[in-house]
Simulated assay, not measured.
Amino acid sequence: MEEKAENGGSIGDDEGKKEKKDMVEELLEAEGGSFSEEEMVDFCLSLLVAGYETTSMLMTLAVKFLTETPAALAELKEEHANIRDMKGKKQPLEWSDYKSMPFTQCVINETLRVGNIISGVFRRANTDIHYKDYTIPKGCKIFASFRAVHLNNEHYENARTFNPWRWQINNKLQNAVGANIFTPFGGGPRLCPGYELARVVVSIFLHHLVTRFR
């Protein structure tokens, strides 16, 4: 279907619509096309590994742990059934609904802690660092293990047991974050920029899982 343009030509139905670009095209044009090939490859790999694989793995582990913990599954079902009852069956979830899922966040926190999808990070010492009886020389690369901290019984009672209720006691989440003993998304200036998005995606997934399937 075509219609006459003011200048006497013709325009199609799709003219005037902005053409969508894929990730590679966006990277080729970003920053005036100044990214090197190595930088673009790094961006693409980071998107796939950090932005996709980790979230899908988190979903998978949440299903595993909930299947093995019927009491947690029952409480999660109740939380989401209440949300669905208040909204009606066909109304989509909104931000306020996401913020009214406290036990869901406990399940996500505990899945992250026990599952340790990202087991740790590498860091390079900018200066000589003295820690207890050890000296880490400048330029030395170290591996900071999240797993070793998250599964340490000194920080979490029965650390290897999936227990989402532990996050309801004494505001444990804030205490853990403040003490840097809960770092599934890293921390400081290198905090994962997609940490809230990952939580939203998994929360919505769990909502539809427990309200529509058994």
Score class of each variant (00 low, 15 high):
residue 128 D to M: 04
residue 196 E to W: 11
residue 23 M to Y: 15
residue 177 V to Q: 06
residue 73 L to Y: 10
residue 145 S to N: 13
residue 100 S to T: 01
residue 102 P to Q: 05
residue 60 T to V: 02
residue 126 N to A: 10
residue 56 S to N: 03
residue 181 I to V: 07
residue 119 S to A: 07
residue 148 A to L: 10
residue 176 A to I: 00
residue 49 V to A: 11
residue 44 C to V: 14
residue 95 W to I: 07
residue 192 C to V: 07
residue 82 N to G: 05
residue 202 V to W: 14
residue 58 L to T: 11
residue 24 V to A: 04
residue 147 R to D: 04
residue 53 E to G: 05
residue 43 F to R: 05
residue 14 D to E: 13
residue 181 I to L: 09
residue 59 M to D: 09
residue 56 S to L: 04
residue 101 M to S: 08
residue 168 Q to L: 15
residue 178 G to L: 01
residue 6 E to G: 08
residue 9 G to A: 11
residue 68 E to P: 01
residue 99 K to N: 12
residue 169 I to R: 12
residue 11 I to R: 12
residue 11 I to C: 12
residue 81 A to N: 07
residue 73 L to R: 14
residue 38 E to C: 10
residue 67 T to N: 04
residue 173 L to D: 09
residue 183 T to A: 12
residue 73 L to H: 08
residue 178 G to D: 02
residue 121 V to I: 10
residue 17 K to W: 15
residue 164 P to S: 09
residue 32 G to V: 10
residue 57 M to S: 06
residue 66 L to A: 08
residue 12 G to Y: 12
residue 18 K to I: 13
residue 145 S to A: 08
residue 60 T to Q: 05
residue 150 H to G: 03
residue 10 S to W: 15
residue 190 R to P: 11
residue 198 A to C: 12
residue 161 T to F: 11
residue 188 G to L: 00
residue 92 P to K: 07
residue 88 G to T: 00
residue 190 R to L: 05
residue 66 L to N: 02
residue 142 I to C: 09
residue 209 L to D: 03
residue 16 G to Y: 14
residue 198 A to K: 15
residue 151 L to G: 04
residue 116 N to A: 06
residue 210 V to W: 14
residue 45 L to P: 02
residue 96 S to C: 07
residue 102 P to N: 05
residue 201 V to S: 14
residue 212 R to T: 12
residue 53 E to F: 01
residue 102 P to M: 04
residue 53 E to M: 02
residue 60 T to M: 04
residue 210 V to D: 15
residue 131 Y to D: 06
residue 19 E to G: 13
residue 159 A to F: 09
residue 60 T to K: 10
residue 42 D to N: 09
residue 111 T to S: 02
residue 182 F to L: 09
residue 91 Q to I: 01
residue 210 V to S: 14
residue 106 C to Y: 13
residue 15 E to M: 14
residue 45 L to T: 02
residue 68 E to K: 00
residue 200 V to D: 10
residue 17 K to Y: 15
residue 63 V to T: 06
residue 213 F to D: 14
residue 181 I to H: 08
residue 206 L to Q: 07
residue 192 C to F: 13
residue 67 T to I: 05
residue 5 A to M: 08
residue 165 W to Y: 00
residue 56 S to H: 08
residue 113 R to W: 04
residue 156 Y to T: 09
residue 27 L to C: 05
residue 175 N to F: 10
residue 25 E to C: 08
residue 77 K to A: 01
residue 16 G to F: 15
residue 204 I to Y: 02
residue 22 D to P: 10
residue 206 L to W: 06
residue 57 M to N: 05
residue 26 E to C: 12
residue 121 V to R: 03
residue 49 V to P: 04
residue 46 S to P: 02
residue 134 Y to L: 13
residue 90 K to C: 05
residue 27 L to E: 09
residue 54 T to P: 00
residue 154 E to H: 02
residue 172 K to M: 08
residue 117 I to T: 05
residue 40 M to E: 12
residue 37 E to C: 04
residue 127 T to D: 12
residue 125 A to P: 05
residue 118 I to M: 03
residue 190 R to I: 02
residue 100 S to M: 00
residue 38 E to N: 15
residue 210 V to F: 15
residue 117 I to A: 02
residue 131 Y to W: 07
residue 61 L to R: 05
residue 147 R to Y: 03
residue 43 F to E: 15
residue 151 L to H: 09
residue 151 L to M: 13
residue 54 T to W: 02
residue 9 G to W: 11
residue 166 R to W: 10
residue 20 K to F: 11
